[in-house]
Every structure is written in structure tokens, then in C-alpha cells.
């Protein structure tokens, strides 16, 4: 079940629903990943990215407390941090510039999250 590739991987979780964020964090902690966050808001995510702390991967909910998370996605792209969208939206709400970003459609099982994140690693 666990994914060794994620060992010590520093993963940012941006997800506004507490229960979902907690589940993602719990699943990834089982893989011995280091969880950054989780953060529920765009501003929180941006300040974390801008803090200079090392981020290896990110899981990003498209809608964070009513705001679209695309500024966060742009910041991640700028920092060359690979990430996946976790979303309840269909693809059409996501701008074309993020066409190559993997999407995890909610609800998803921890296995799918793990394989999606693993595929992002170099």
C-alpha cells in the first residue's frame, strides 16, 4: 500500500475541506512523506510557497474557500514544483495552460493519490 518513492518527500497540501485535507495528510504520512500544511486558503498556500521552504510536490484543490486556486498553480509552475489538482470540477474549469497537470477527481482513494504523485517525481 505504501509508496517508498514518497519517503521524505516534502508535499504541500492545499485543500479547504478539513476532513479531506486530514485524510490526504494521513495517507501520505503513512508513506513517510513530510506534509507541508495542509492549508485551506490561497493566501496561506502562496505564503508557504514564498517562504523559501523546500517543496517537492503539491496537491492542490481547485477551489479554496470560494477562490480559484490558479494563482497558487502559477506560483508552483514558476518554482518548477510538480503538482496535481484534486478537484470536484470537470476539466473545463481549468485553464488551458494547466492542460498537462494531472487531475484527481474527488472522491479518490489514497492509492490513486499515491500513483499520481509518484508519476510527478523526476
Amino acid at each position: 500500500m505504501t509508496e517508498a518513492a514518497l519517503q521524505d518527500c516534502r508535499i504541500l497540501i492545499a485543500e479547504d475541506e478539513y476532513l479531506i485535507a486530514a485524510d490526504i495528510a494521513e495517507a501520505l504520512e503513512q508513506d513517510n512523506a513530510v506534509i507541508l500544511g495542509p492549508v485551506p486558503r490561497v493566501a496561506d498556500a502562496l505564503s508557504l510557497i514564498g517562504s523559501g521552504t523546500r517543496i517537492d510536490l503539491a496537491v492542490l484543490d481547485v477551489n479554496l474557500c470560494g477562490d480559484m486556486a490558479f494563482p497558487v498553480a502559477d506560483a508552483l509552475v514558476e518554482q518548477r514544483i510538480p503538482f496535481a489538482f484534486a478537484t470536484g470540477y470537470d476539466g473545463w474549469t481549468i485553464p488551458a495552460r494547466f492542460a498537462d497537470v494531472p487531475r484527481l477527481v474527488k472522491p479518490f482513494r489514497p492509492d490513486r493519490l499515491r500513483s499520481a504523485l509518484k508519476s510527478l517525481l523526476p
Binding site: L19, I20, T87, G88, Y89, V105
Partner: peptide, 10 residues
Amino acid sequence: QHRTRNLMAV
């Protein structure tokens, strides 16, 4: 869609 799928996740 967002709410329904979030609700499913919840």
C-alpha cells in the same frame, strides 16, 4: 459538481 464530489469525499 464541486459540492457533490466534495460531499462524497466528506
